[in-house]
Design a protein around this nucleic acid. Sequence first.
DNA 1: TTTGAAAAATGAACAATGTTCATTTTCTTT
DNA 2: AAAGAAAATGAACATTGTTCATTTTTCAAA
Lengths: 215, 215
Amino acid sequence: MFIFFALQYKTMSTAERKAREKEELKALILKASMKLFVEKGISQTTIRNIADAIDYSIGTVYIYFRDKNAILYALHTECFSELGGQFRVLYNVKDPMERLKAMGKVYIQFAMENPDKYDLMFNLKEPMEFLNEIQAKEWDEGAATFDVLRTTVQECIKAGHFKGHNLEPLSYLIWSCVHGMCSLEIRARTKGVLLKNPDTIVSDAYSEYLKLIDK
Amino acid sequence: MFIFFALQYKTMSTAERKAREKEELKALILKASMKLFVEKGISQTTIRNIADAIDYSIGTVYIYFRDKNAILYALHTECFSELGGQFRVLYNVKDPMERLKAMGKVYIQFAMENPDKYDLMFNLKEPMEFLNEIQAKEWDEGAATFDVLRTTVQECIKAGHFKGHNLEPLSYLIWSCVHGMCSLEIRARTKGVLLKNPDTIVSDAYSEYLKLIDK
DNA sequence: TTTGAAAAATGAACAATGTTCATTTTCTTT
DNA sequence: AAAGAAAATGAACATTGTTCATTTTTCAAA
């Protein structure tokens, strides 16, 4: 009986360690991938680069991720955690309208400081293709983030703002506004359009947005 | 003297025909490319596909376009012509505010009906990379299209709308709104977010936008 | 400690892609 | 008809994501 437990214990602990090691290597792959993505761009980063960076072979990467889309999806999830963490700070802002305005600012700042991460979250098709591959019905990260926005807008409406508006379409409009600004900038559609102040166009436009929703 | 003219004439005419034939083949490549892009998607279309479609070899394609980005840029330009043509109809709308609202509708309809073309115009990096390759300082198509918007907004302001707003940032905000809606939809960020009416979210959000700018 | 099977890691090999360029074919001029 | 110029060709290259037969490592059982 004692021996059985001992063996069982040892077996379990080894299995646990192995599972932990698997998670660690998975995390290592993701860490190296993210570093390379930020350093040289997502499209310029190859599986070979990632394998080299962690001193493992190409094949090993494929043991831990079924394909490149899986890596992109995993990183996309990490990025949502990061942005979600920044949003969480805003729960301290009690006035929903102030919180909504602050959220937009945080969103834009995140996008401008992390264009590749933003691309991964909202522009690239690959992470969504991965969801198709595994036949996922929901996009959890997107749903959760949109829910944060929708809830805030809901509170704004309750507080008497946005009279005559409908919650979901209005929330989507607000998301679209800030996303549009970031996306056009990141995807290089503001360069070469001969703007008077190309460097500040996003924050200037955000000021116009603030005026608009305050009416 | 006569002989000189005759020779000269013949030379010119041949050169002209050759130039015309070159243009024709170039147009043929673009036509086939666009067809394939719409049929099977831009990323799924290869140079070999294009060469096969027009019964020429791979190498020939490279005589007429320096690289794939050049093809994407040329098509992107065609798409801007198409959208520009649709905008031109709106010049009949005298009231600038009505025109602005109609422009957004046309813009969104174009995006929803031609997602690949829209991608080419506003999402993909390749056409802009081509501008970098040839060291272009301006993005003519974008500049011209933005100018149409800015001019309309300018007229709106003159007519007493958008009090307290600044022209360029406001124009960029409006562009961002409609672009954001289209981009999120085309890049599959509305699927899986558990919206109540995912199929009509873009047009529903546009209604909210109309309410917002009318205040 | 030895052993053998399971797990993990490997990297050569494959298919697909954009691109190049020496060669061939076609056209134009003399 | 011949020579030179222009156009077209497609084999070949480099780089990608991906696979999988083989090798190496791990670890419980003897």
